[in-house]
Design a protein around this nucleic acid. Sequence first.
DNA 1: TCCGGTATCCTGTAAAAACAGGATTTTTGA
DNA 2: TCAAAAATCCTGTTTTTACAGGATACCGGA
Lengths: 207, 207
Amino acid sequence: MAATIKLFIVDDHHMVIEGIYSLLQQETQLEWMGHATNADSCLAFLRVRQPDILFMDISLGETSGIDLCKTVKELYPAVFIIGLSTFNQQSFIKKMMEHGASGYVLKNATRQELLQAIETVRLGQTYLSLEAAQSISNQQSEGVPLLTRREKEVLEQIAEGLTNQEIAEKLFISSTTVDTHRKNLLAKFKARNVAALIMIATRMQVI
Amino acid sequence: MAATIKLFIVDDHHMVIEGIYSLLQQETQLEWMGHATNADSCLAFLRVRQPDILFMDISLGETSGIDLCKTVKELYPAVFIIGLSTFNQQSFIKKMMEHGASGYVLKNATRQELLQAIETVRLGQTYLSLEAAQSISNQQSEGVPLLTRREKEVLEQIAEGLTNQEIAEKLFISSTTVDTHRKNLLAKFKARNVAALIMIATRMQVI
DNA sequence: TCCGGTATCCTGTAAAAACAGGATTTTTGA
DNA sequence: TCAAAAATCCTGTTTTTACAGGATACCGGA
């Protein structure tokens, strides 16, 4: 690598901060600018200086990493963000990427993986750790049925626990119409009943 | 402290291992015996040598830290175990304690907290990190309801889309019993119906 | 030993969902 | 503009769930 790459990390777990420091401390081409343990102090730091790459935990106590990711990208588009998480939750990964993250590594990543992620992201490319990549490519889009606007609305209301009658009143349609949509939803998701429907839909991140 | 305290850590996240090493490396009265990234190699190590204190992650990939905790305590009652987790999940903490853990710290613990935990546990007392203690006392309010073994089984089957009758046959019980469990599940999760139940339960990562 | 929690089972009713098999109107994109 | 897709609405029947209000048996911990 040519120039020094400036890094910053925001994570509410000291062990993780120390761990990532420790794993990368020998790399002379990397410069640690510091760390923050919450969204506010991270933003406060960024107002003064910006790193090239920002490691960001997905769950920052109260504030979600997703939100912070969005904010940072709006204010400082040049900062590349790499998500950090112990969860291999594809929904989180997806949302972070949608909000401008450039990459994603799990906290059980090795030194090699971290370096690879930094390299890749710095070039403006996307890095997904192996497990994360698997997780994304596996389920998603494969087998996710295409829902109409109305079907999605009805599905959300069902998930809220409303009955057909209640949904009908809420959406100003007949309960038999709701029933039809329900029927179509079950067919599209190949679900036997509403329990399986909600289960499958949440797994597919439709709701 | 008088004698050297021997430590070992089992955690499947490199960052956490590096982090805890890093946080405690300056303490001369502490001796790191090493680390393991899974239950098997941890047990393999223990067959040869035993630490005074064993830091143990609650989620070790496939194997649960809960199980490992139990096994270790059966084989080596003299080893004090301190649970480690990013989750502030009261049920996990409780289970670990029930299975012989002497303490519990969250992964966002500071150096001081870790030292305090080690000190306390070494004396045979119980150490719960502040947040963990709060979490235990709070419990019900906004937390995940405590499910029994059977309720969890039934919940899983409901999520699969099985009817009461089918679940009954599968678990070799009466369908009215399944109905009772279902009733209790709805009450515990404060759900109006099965749709809301599955929604809430998945959100809480119970299923 | 006794108590509380768990698990089991029951009867009965009302409500809701699931299933079958339609039809009509509205929207929309090639 | 015209067909396809979407959204709307029926009438039924059957199955399942939700809810009410019980009872009994077992087991592990105080």
